[in-house]
Every structure is written in C-alpha cells, then in structure tokens.
C-alpha cells in the first residue's frame, strides 16, 4: 500500500507517480508517428531511468532519429504519450513545450551553431533569454562549460573559424548551459572527419560518467558497447531488440539484428 500524496488526491498535474525517486525520467507509451500514409514509428514503449545511457542503433529509415526528435517535440507524433521529467509533451501549448525543452538538450549531426554569434554568445544566448540568468553569472558559466569541453580559449571566436570537432564540442557546451536533465545526441559524429570523432566522444563519455541521462542515435558501435547501459535496436519503426550491450552485440536474438551487425563489418 502506497501512501497517496495530497497533490495526487487533488489531481494536481505535478502528481505523476513516475516523477518519484527511482521512477523513469522519460516514459514513452504507444507512440506512433506517420508522414502522410507512411508510418515511421509503429508503437514505441520505452522507459528511461535517470542517469541511464541509451544507444539507439539501426538501419537508416528505421525511425531511430525520428524517435529521438519526438522526445523534444521537433517531430509531431499522432498517437501515444511522452512524459519527460513529469511533464507531458503538449504541442498546442507553446509554454509547456518550452518548459519541457528546458529539460531536454539536443546535439545535432550538423552542429547547428548560430553562425552570426561568437562561441561565447552561442552558449550564453538561451540561458540569457529563457532562464534570465544574470550577465556575470552567465558569462562565468559559459566559460566554465567551454573549459570543460576543452575550448576555453575560443570564447570570442566565430563558429566558422572552428573545426567540426570543435564546433560540436561548442554545441555540447551550449546544450549543457541550459542544465538539461536529458541529453539527446542525433548522430553527432557522423559529419566529422574520422580524426575528430574521438575528441567529441570523449566529452560525451565524460557526461555519461557524471550521471547525465543520455539517449544517442549512433553508428559508433564500439562506443555504444563501451558507454551504453542499454542498447536499442530499431527496425521498421519498432523497438526490435533491447538490452545490455554485451547481450545485443554478443548474442543477438533476431535475424534482423544479426544481419545488421554483420553488415557493419563488411
């Protein structure tokens, strides 16, 4: 018998039971999404615990990026529900969307730095506008985050003067500046030259070590194996296999996953 908190009895919106300690930080239930008649996600159920690191793998077109982009509302889904840190995703409520997005950072394949702003201002813009963080504090925090990703000396540089790996690290600092509870990484090393992949993955790994909840769509299988707590193999818009990396990579149960893994070694 669980004691019912007062707010639940009153039916308050903050009373979602899964916001309690040990409950999932992200809960996706029966999520379906289609573009026109083509169904891309065909019923996804997924719970992610706080501090968990998830790697999402699968062929292109399997819906893995779409799933990631649903989590912060960049893609609109038609059926099902998505709850982040106790907040329901509500498309028709811009205020609720912004509240939810404050808790969800995202890093993109193409970095998407703001090219007209210096590195420092890229990092400081959102905390300034959205969190109203005071100037001096914002500045100090941005410098600290840039130092953390190894780019302290680039504070005043313009993004186009940086290498791809450096730009991606700035993007990570920019996302961290909003103090998100979850970080989404959408193939963040796919646009990088091979010699620059390592520097970005090292930063991501340090996030994982510090307990950040991470969901990453990735083609870096060895990285997924090393860092992820669970790996999700997506196939034709469904979670086809899910489990610890040793299990998925070591003993794939389905022919689709076996085929996918062997295709990587070709």
């Amino acid at each position: 018998m669980i004691a019912v908190p007062e707010s639940v009895a009153k039916g308050g919106p903050s009373a979602e039971p899964h916001t309690q300690v040990g409950a999932p930080i992200l809960r996706i239930t029966a999520l379906r999404k289609s573009y026109g008649t083509h169904e891309v996600l065909r019923g996804i159920d997924l719970d992610v615990m706080r501090g968990e690191v998830l790697a999402i793998i699968g062929k292109s077109g399997s819906g893995k990026s779409t799933l990631l982009r649903c989590i912060n509302g960049l893609e609109v889904f038609q059926h099902g529900s998505l709850i982040v840190d106790g907040k329901h995703l509500l498309y028709d409520n811009p205020k609720a969307m912004r509240d939810l997005r404050q808790g969800v950072g995202m890093i993109f394949q193409n970095f998407n730095l703001f090219p007209h702003l210096s590195v420092g201002r890229n990092v400081m813009l959102a905390p300034h506008l959205v969190k109203k963080r005071p100037g001096a504090e914002n500045d100090a925090r941005a410098r600290q985050l840039l130092a953390r990703v190894g780019l302290a000396e680039k504070f005043d540089a313009m993004p186009d003067k940086l290498s791809g790996g450096q730009q991606q690290r700035v993007a990570i600092a920019r996302a961290l500046a909003m103090d998100p509870a979850i970080m989404l990484c959408d193939e963040i090393t796919s646009a990088l030259d091979p010699e620059l992949v390592g520097e970005v993955l090292r930063v991501v790994e340090s996030l994982a070590d510090e307990g950040m909840t991470l969901l990453m769509v990735t083609h870096e299988m060895s990285f997924a194996r090393k860092v992820a707590d669970r790996v999700i193999f997506m196939h034709q818009g469904l979670v086809h296999e899910i489990g610890p990396p040793a299990e998925l990579f070591g003993a794939p149960r389905t022919p689709e996953l076996r085929q996918f893994l062997s295709s990587l070694h070709d």
Binding site: N72, R98, M106, F108, L113, L125, L129, V130
Partner: peptide, 12 residues
C-alpha cells in the same frame, strides 16, 4: 537546423 537548434534550446 537553425530553427531546430533554437527551438530545442527552449526559445520562443
């Protein structure tokens, strides 16, 4: 990507 990046940073 500019719209998406700024949206994901919770800008209105």
């Amino acid at each position: 990507g500019q719209w998406e990046a700024s949206a994901s940073l919770a800008l209105s």
